[in-house]
Design a protein around this nucleic acid. Sequence first.
DNA 1: TTAACATTCAAACGTTCGTTTGAATCTGGA
DNA 2: TCCAGATTCAAACGAACGTTTGAATGTTAA
Lengths: 227, 227
Amino acid sequence: MSLRSIKPPHETRTRILDAAEELFMQHGFESTSMRLLTAKAGANLAAVNYHFGSKDALIEAVFRRRLDPMNAGRIAELDRLEKEAGGRALAPEAIIRAFVGASLRMIEDSKCGGRNFIRLLGRTYTDPQKHIRSLIGQLYAPAMARFKTAFERALPQMPGDELVWRMHFMFGTLAYTLAATDTVQLIAGCKPEDRYDARLLEARLTAFLAAGLLAPLHDSADVKKAA
Amino acid sequence: MSLRSIKPPHETRTRILDAAEELFMQHGFESTSMRLLTAKAGANLAAVNYHFGSKDALIEAVFRRRLDPMNAGRIAELDRLEKEAGGRALAPEAIIRAFVGASLRMIEDSKCGGRNFIRLLGRTYTDPQKHIRSLIGQLYAPAMARFKTAFERALPQMPGDELVWRMHFMFGTLAYTLAATDTVQLIAGCKPEDRYDARLLEARLTAFLAAGLLAPLHDSADVKKAA
DNA sequence: TTAACATTCAAACGTTCGTTTGAATCTGGA
DNA sequence: TCCAGATTCAAACGAACGTTTGAATGTTAA
């Protein structure tokens, strides 16, 4: 038995996950048939049910594989920044960058299929199926709580519900930007060139989000009076 | 023949469109079967193919019915504002409000099923199927061009590509906010109460978007140097 | 070599899908 | 009243779906 033939464990599992990632991104969950998927993965039709149990379980596995490490990285980055700052408060923009950077770094990473995943992820926040949305929510929960307290510390003067909404807006901007990589031309009116240079995009996105987060508080009394 | 029995033209057509709007929102396009849809509309299974030709044509009709008037309203509102201002430049926030308001007013309108449509629309910008995305893009194109020149007039100092991206971000924030009406609790950690009071949401969203649009220009030279 | 286990395979299962068909029914003007 | 066109209806079509099955093959350790 030669060295070449030492088979990595779960080889088919990984091939299936890779194929699923790409096809789910291209066609969505329902339009991706097990027959097309297993063919692309070079596996037998029954392989998905053997290795994952069902198509739904495969979908869950696709998200767990990348989302867990990604959010762990976000939290670690935040820990690092806070340690580095000693007792001082973090700049809101630094917190934003810790969150946004994780997504954009994955886009840049061309050798792992992260770009497919990020686009897929960005679209799945608004998936019709509730159990899929709640899976995503569950996988995000720890990081979300961690970043929320970080923002609270950085912006002690901001009312709680206001912060919740602004985080919601920021999260949405990121999600849409990553998912809708081709709708820029809707506005530009032409094909994007190198518009998805991740580094430039990160700078633009961070500037936009930081300004939105720090926007002057609207006078909610005005709104209530007008109503 | 009594007055009551005067049948409005295209009655079934309308019932089908209404049912489609609600079911597409609840389950997505593919998970909504013609059998469920026609049953909800109180029509025969063959009715969709008779009145619209195919399921895809029905999807298109669902969007055309509401999107065309909505964008026409946006443009009319912008015309009104510019006429009102005489020759003076419009405030960027007023332009934003003209765009955002059209969506939020439809959410509030409870008697027409606009709320379903808006959620459906918000998610469809990132639909996997390219021909659906390009349909939406085509329906938005006139309004998008109109608002782009309005922003250019209001912000003459902003570089063109920068404006394109910031409009992209704003559009995305709006789309996500409308589509993901239940992910706020992802951040809040609890059920939203009256969180979707449209008027309060409009104030919050406009403040966020205006600040983001007017964010200080990042030094793109820095980014290029670092790369 | 053998036995136990893990994986792959071709084939079939029952179900559901969008669409089509041709007859039945309704509608409005001659 | 009668007829042409519009609409509705029950029934069926072939295709594609996710999943299951049981045999075949590959792998590992005694």
